[in-house]
């Protein structure tokens, strides 16, 4: 799980081109949108595509997105849960 969380952070940095940012600088509990990382709806679509490409997990609707994008921790749990399904 810790390893997956690290890969999720790397995917976020890579996909959103957060240059100069390291995985350590992203807090597990911080919200991805609004406060916290301060991402917007354009970043959300980028992340949806990145998650599908890197982890093979689809976020089909906004309800799952709202749940998955609460924090890195929530996103990691979402990916872990849906990866093998």
């Amino acid at each position: 799980m810790t390893d997956l969380k690290q890969r999720v952070k790397e995917m976020i940095i890579d996909r959103l081109k957060l240059e100069g940012m390291t995985p350590d600088q992203i807090e597990d509990q911080a919200p991805l949108f609004g406060e916290g990382l301060g991402l917007d709806s354009i970043d959300a679509l980028e992340l949806v595509l990145g998650i599908e490409q890197v982890f093979g997990v689809k976020i089909e609707d906004e309800a799952s997105g709202t749940q998955a994008f609460r924090s890195v921790e929530a996103l990691t749990a979402f990916i872990a849960e849906h990866r093998k399904a």
Binding site: S41, A44, L45, L49, E52, I59, E62
Partner: peptide, 10 residues
């Protein structure tokens, strides 16, 4: 189309 989410399409 690459994907859609939250009313956006790429």
């Amino acid at each position: 189309l690459e994907g859609t989410f939250g009313g956006l399409m790429k």
